[in-house]
Design a protein around this nucleic acid. Structure first.
Lengths: 249, 249
DNA sequence: CCTACCGATCGGTAGG
DNA sequence: CCTACCGATCGGTAGG
């Protein structure tokens, strides 16, 4: 009812991932190539089922047999599409992040050309809430909860994508800080903002009274000062008090 | 260096839990009674090891064999102290919550008699950050991450304790709302505050520049208006816009 | 708390 | 994608 499906990420049948598969060039004949990062209908179905189950039960508690039977195939067949259970998790999170990056770009492109930092942040927050709370979209919750089950290198890859996602947030928050519109340094504000946004996963009710737009407005009111009140510089904690290495989320 | 050990919760050798064990009254002779919620040194050691491992690897990825060998006992021996692996998890979280309730009471008791709502909230936030980020204290992270692995009834028990823990927060935030000191309704503010506090688990560095007191001050600046600025009533979202049933965390 | 063990499950594979 | 299967692991128990 409320959730727009322009945020349904997992089922985009096309992928940007143009890995150099099939070097010989004999494509399209016979069985689909294993090992190619391709998108068959079954593959996408498995990704969606896996994402849902990883979210509800966790990665470890989900068996590849569960996923297979929910998709109506035999217990060994998921391994035709994914080498390991772990690769299934990685693909869920990676493709989720890819479309998140795209849809964030799209949301920003709808802003007026000379949008203020405040307007931009407002759009970012609203988009993020959609991403997070759209019932059909499980990957964010999986990414936040199941990072532990990724291999170290996979984790680094996801972290880089997250860094790209947050870059615009950094810029906008820096600008707001310069304008004296924040209550705390930009870095702390950003981490607190993401924390409280992600916390919504634990309590927000899609059937409830509070719309995502209202929720976004509340967050803006909390984290950004209204103009008119006297601006301030922050006495405690310099501008870079945080260890950027540990900056997950 | 920075973390005070008055917040070390798991290793309090005495427990409040006075379950009516040993109905016949012949206590203290022979082997310790199984099934009694008692505290042997080994039992506490197992709880600490389990908490650490549940936090680092997750409940499902932790094997009772790991726990046993880290404690230097045989693989089947943990089941002498705990009926199931699940009971081990439940005990970690439950006893953690018990001492959290105690230490929160203690922190509040150190406040001046006529402390303002702002001062009280400040003390609550600082105590909560200690609870959350003290390196020797794993149960909060386990509680937040591994709720899924609790049985439904266990989850309800923990939820009741969390409700007690949050009661004081509710009262203080309601008072601040009445004074026009919040940027959003008390309920939304509380959930956003807890979300951003819990988010610290993902990025706060105990070795870093930012002390817990400084961090607490930042949070207070974000979530509570400074006096002097014009107060406001919140136009969007009535006073109870949230579904209280789903109010985890 | 140890010894010795069971039953079940699960990720993954060979070969078609 | 199916059939048929393996090897390993794991929670838990009986009996002392």
């Amino acid at each position: 009812m409320k959730s727009s499906s322009r945020f349904s990420l997992q089922d985009s049948s096309e992928t940007l991932d143009v890995t150099p598969s099939d070097p010989a060039g004999k494509r399209g004949r016979g069985r689909p190539r294993k090992k190619a990062g391709e998108s068959s209908a079954r593959r996408n179905e498995l990704l969606q089922i896996a994402a849902r189950s990883f979210r509800l039960k966790g990665f470890d508690a989900t068996t590849t047999r569960d996923i297979a039977s929910e998709s109506g195939i035999q217990s060994g067949s998921p391994f035709y599409h994914f080498k390991t259970k772990n690769e299934l998790l990685f693909t869920v999170v990676k493709e989720g992040m890819e479309s998140a990056l795209q849809s964030q770009e799209l949301a920003l492109s709808h802003l007026p050309a000379q949008a203020s930092a405040q307007q931009t942040l407002s759009a970012l927050v609203l988009h993020h809430l959609h991403l997070l709370l759209d019932p059909g979209n499980d990957f964010v919750a999986v990414m936040l909860t199941e990072q532990r089950s990724l291999l170290a290198e996979q984790r680094r890859t996801i972290k880089r994508m997250l860094e790209r996602y947050q870059q615009i947030w950094r810029e906008v928050l820096d600008k707001l800080e310069q304008q004296g519109m924040l209550h705390a340094p930009a870095s702390v504000t950003r981490l607190a903002l993401f924390g409280s946004l992600h916390g919504c996963l634990g309590w927000y009710d899609n059937q409830g009274q509070l719309s995502l737009s209202e929720l976004a407005a509340h967050y803006m009111n909390i984290f950004v000062r209204r103009p008119g009140a006297a601006p301030r510089r922050h006495p405690i904690g310099a501008s870079a008090p945080l260890c950027p290495e540990n900056d997950n989320t």
